[in-house]
Design a protein around this nucleic acid. Structure first.
Lengths: 154, 154
DNA sequence: GCCAGATTGGTTACATGTCAACAAACAGCT
DNA sequence: AGCTGTTTGTTGACATGTAACCAATCTGGC
């Protein structure tokens, strides 16, 4: 490899800023969420994904795919949430191997109670700080990066 | 709390995009780094921070502050890196409680060998995908968010 | 129907992070 | 000096993520 193209000042600022923002912003929003609702960030993601389904249920693998989680991670997390009564597992009617994750009434109540505060937190620490154009560009950046990651395999 | 101001379409796109980008982009860059150099992302961060010092050494607490890590996390990570010969601990001359983390020659070699590939990876999956303006805005966003997080305490 | 290979969900072993508690050392005040 | 409260780094108990493996089941070709 020849001498690499190091990051210039502006590029480095963006990269370092992204890294630090990721570290602190996510920690802050997770802390707010936990304090206000007793849910962890992953809890919220699972409940949110489940509640987006009309019948409140998902096959484990399908849910893992949608969330970009490993099966293993989701299986473990579901076990923990099951102990707290937020979700349950049911057998799948069409595939005896399958396990269907179902949002309980308690789980639905938990996400409904947590959502307003969570949105407020996201607004306070991110969205409401930015101009409309900055929000637009952030969306663009994410779209570009994600499309690129989906395309290449190397 | 009255009815919250839910995120509109554009805001939701930015927030969800940020979340997914964080998940996939970081995983991808970490995977490249590990494959090419055998270093984990935290390894790289520690080595990078240490090598930025003229004498290759930092007090543990100061290093933790700079990296925005907890003392506990850094202490544990240093122990693991010490076993691999990347860093060592020395006693502090001016404070008998203190522990000074020192980058070894092997550690310096590791970061020097890893850096070009890492920069290349960051370019390929992020920086080179974006326009100059988008890079600028990303830096702006991070600056705004980080300044805000630093200011408030609630 | 039967078999080879893929898929599904779970589990075990392990890596890594958090939190609380701790001993040792420091710093400021009297 | 002596006392008190703070700072420093480490550790034990625990929460949570990953990787490799496994048994059960499904699938498609024969």
């Amino acid at each position: 490899m020849t001498d690499p193209r190091w990051l210039d000042e502006r590029e480095f600022r963006a990269w370092l800023g992204y890294r630090r923002m990721r570290l602190l912003l996510d920690a802050r929003i997770a802390r707010d969420l936990s304090r206000d609702s007793g849910l962890s960030d992953p809890d919220y993601d699972v409940l949110s994904a489940l509640s987006s389904s009309a019948d409140r249920r998902w096959r484990l693998q399908a849910l893992a795919d949608r969330m970009l989680w490993s099966k293993s991670r989701l299986s473990r997390h579901i076990s923990r949430m099951e102990e707290r009564g937020l979700v349950t597992r049911e057998e799948c009617a069409t595939d005896a191997r399958g396990s269907v994750i179902v949002l309980t009434d308690d789980g639905m109540r938990a996400i409904e109670e947590a959502a307003p505060g969570h949105v407020e937190s996201v607004r306070r620490h991110l969205i409401d700080l930015l101009s409309g154009e900055q929000i637009e560009v952030l969306g663009d950046i994410a779209e570009i990066v994600l499309r690129h990651l989906g395309e290449d395999g190397d």
